[in-house]
């Protein structure tokens, strides 16, 4: 009971400046989160974006060719044109006359997405089985198949973010109108 009064006083002073609901939440929240460090989260936090730092490592398409053939081609086709999984990684043109095929090369606005997605979700039958270096290598190969880089271009955190995707300007962010 001894700390009842201070808590109530805190709640009351919150009600002056904030809606009642907020004060109630502060009163009721049991505050059970344990503080963690980004270090401790490094294996679980897989977000790779322009803002969230991409990991160390690098690779070229030349190095990625074999990984692609061994671990991706069975589903996406030897040339990345779709294959058995019917998920093309290559081709298409957003300016074509007929319905465009939307792929990494033709549609994706950000190169960081390729690292982020392949690391978290591919290969679909063994997600997270590639090392960061292998991810850099195999995505370099996907970019190479799309004609976006040559086979010796080193892809790493910096060069990947610097890569301008063909459809980069093709999206309208609707979130403001929601």
């Amino acid at each position: 009971m001894s700390n009842f009064k201070p808590t109530l006083a805190l709640a009351l002073c919150f009600t002056l400046s904030a809606p009642l609901a907020v004060a109630q939440q502060i009163l009721e929240s049991p505050q059970l989160g344990n503080t963690v460090t980004q270090m401790e989260l490094s294996e679980l936090d897989l977000i790779a974006s322009e803002e969230s730092v991409l990991p160390a490592g690098s690779g070229t398409a030349f190095q990625g060719r074999e990984i692609y053939a061994a671990k991706c081609a069975s589903c996406h086709g030897a040339e990345g044109l779709g294959g058995a999984a019917n998920q093309p990684l290559v081709g298409g043109n957003m300016r074509s006359e007929d319905a465009p095929i939307r792929t990494v090369g033709s549609y994706w606005p950000h190169a960081s997405t390729l690292f982020d997605y392949v690391r978290r979700a591919m290969p679909a039958n063994a997600p997270k089985s590639l090392s960061n270096t292998e991810v850099y290598q195999v995505i370099a190969y996907v970019l190479y198949m799309n004609g976006l880089i040559d086979q010796y271009k080193v892809i790493n955190a910096e060069t990947l973010l610097a890569l301008k995707m063909p459809n980069a300007g093709g999206f309208v962010d609707m979130s403001a109108s929601d």
């Binding site: 322009e50 803002e51 997405t113 999206f171 929601d178």
Partner: peptide, 27 residues
């Protein structure tokens, strides 16, 4: 974060391309 993470399922998928070939994101 300051900006969206641009996940595959908010760029490659769950987006709609209009007749003028611009695509709507975060609908």
């Amino acid at each position: 974060s300051k900006e969206p993470s641009q996940f595959r399922d908010e760029t490659s998928k769950y987006t709609d391309t209009l007749a003028d070939r611009s695509s709507l994101q975060f609908t």
